[in-house]
Design a protein around this nucleic acid. Structure first.
Lengths: 198, 198
DNA sequence: CTGCAGATGTATCAGCTCGATACATCAGTC
DNA sequence: GACTGATGTATCGAGCTGATACATCTGCAG
């Protein structure tokens, strides 16, 4: 129980290193590119996380390609261990609040390629109900508010609601696509060959 | 130099208490309603902030309406002092990175009613260039990326960019409205009476 | 009238994250 | 050959979150 990492970062790091070994600086760049407009990690959280993953044996420093002259040590390249891969699989399997909250949804989505279809669906649906719940809260809170609000506040509310509604529509499309794919798949498994399988 | 509050919270609290005195619990509810989908404050940050504002003399505990039986003390109602109002004005006057970053823009916007037109415009424009800069970074980072990304990552990027573009369009509309109002005003100040002055 | 469940209300703490900073190394370049 | 900017590792103070504790008030079922 040595490392108590944050879950989000753990998945982000393990997932990135699974694609190929990396050193801290580049790892950060990759992640911040991957997550684009959604999140940005800082070294102050990245390095402690790497340290924890090391002590837990989920990653190791990669050996330099032995023809390198000794006395050089600038880059520290990390790669996954077998345990690390196992842990990553575990993280990719669980769908729960920690996979559809604001901070973590982006990461989980970014690694959907490695996630089972059923889990993908549950995460998307979880995210959707999370957003709908939030809209509901805001709407009832608004309704309970006695004094009417000024136009700027109202505009802020309107824009916020509209943004979230837009994200819900986006999720709906994704969910439909996933369902359609699942249907295709089960059809083709029954031997019906739906043209060309991806 | 007693209090070193976070700026965002300070504005949020002072601004809310300016409308009417409140106690902590309700203050939090108000703020989280006001900011709707954008932010949520926790007690762990709110109470320390109130404490700091107290010691700096920007707020005081309101006297109970003296017919109340003594020995009662459950609610602690805070209200602004003269210094607090001054400080609030100061916060509402400054337009800078701390007013258009993600965490703080919503609060500043929510109190635009109390903000001068010129400051409003600078904050909106600052926010817009912040978002454009971020889009630019993502786009160039994407362009530099060698390996092509899987469809989920791509979809995430697309959705992110689209959301930000949408917010930029929203800002453009607001900026145009502000400019038009400023023009109206300067016209009416030159004595041209444009129908009904607000 | 009693008790008890749920909203109201104040307060704190461990753990985590951010932003800043420090300090090396490396590539290009005039 | 030394300056500049990108690359790279690492830490720290300050602040925030989520959880938790605990007290009070209100409604209402038994």
């Amino acid at each position: 129980m040595t490392g108590s990492r944050s879950g989000v970062l753990e998945l982000a790091v393990l997932g990135s290193l699974h694609e190929n070994p990396l050193h801290g600086y580049e790892l950060r760049k990759r992640l911040n590119t991957l997550l684009g407009m959604f999140r940005a990690f800082s070294y102050g959280s990245l390095y402690p996380c790497l340290k924890g993953l090391l002590t837990d044996g989920l990653i190791v420093e990669e050996e330099p390609p032995d023809d390198v002259v000794l006395g050089r040590r600038s880059k520290i390249v990390y790669k996954l261990t077998a345990e690390g891969k196992e842990r990553l699989q575990e993280l990719l399997t669980q769908a729960g609040p920690s996979s559809w909250e604001d901070e973590s949804f982006g990461i989980h989505f970014a690694f959907f390629r490695h996630t089972e279809a059923e889990v993908r669906l549950r995460i998307l649906e979880g995210r959707r109900s999370r957003l709908e719940e939030r809209m509901e809260n805001v709407r009832t809170a608004l309704a309970r508010t006695r004094e009417r609000l000024d136009s700027y506040t109202l505009e802020l509310q309107r824009h916020g609601l509209e943004s979230v509604e837009r994200e819900v529509r986006w999720l709906n499309e994704l969910i439909n696509t996933e369902r359609a794919q699942a249907a295709d798949k089960s059809q083709s498994e029954r031997g019906e060959r739906p043209d060309s399988g991806e």
